[in-house]
């Protein structure tokens, strides 16, 4: 299972913090997000828009990057750690 994880404002807007998605083969990240939004019943712009970054297995990646069947995708809103 590929896993989608949501944080902070995006988690609250989506109403879900994680979602497992069965993939038969790798998909580009943008297609994975489309599939996940349909499965979660979340409007696509909530998890795919210009203010967001994405990480695959903990490394920031672009929307064309492949997502494999056991990868973890994280949706990262603008970061605001520190002070």
């Amino acid at each position: 299972m590929a896993r989608l994880r949501l944080f902070a404002a995006v988690r609250e807007k989506a109403g879900v913090d994680a979602l497992d998605v069965a993939l038969a083969e790798p998909l580009p990240l943008r297609d994975f997000l489309t599939l996940a939004s349909e499965k979660a019943g979340v409007a696509l712009p909530v998890i795919m828009n210009n203010s967001l970054l994405y990480a695959i297995n903990g490394n920031v990646r672009g929307l064309d990057s492949p997502v494999g069947p056991s990868d973890e995708v994280a949706v990262l809103p603008p970061m605001s750690g520190g002070v």
Binding site: A8, A9, S51, A55, L76, M79, S80, G81, V83
Partner: peptide, 27 residues
Amino acid sequence: LIDELKKRVPIWKKEYAHSGAWWVEDH
């Protein structure tokens, strides 16, 4: 270190005031 931390480390801050709460999304 503090400048890069704010840009690169996936940590998010929510502020709680008496009137409500909001996620901070600027630097």
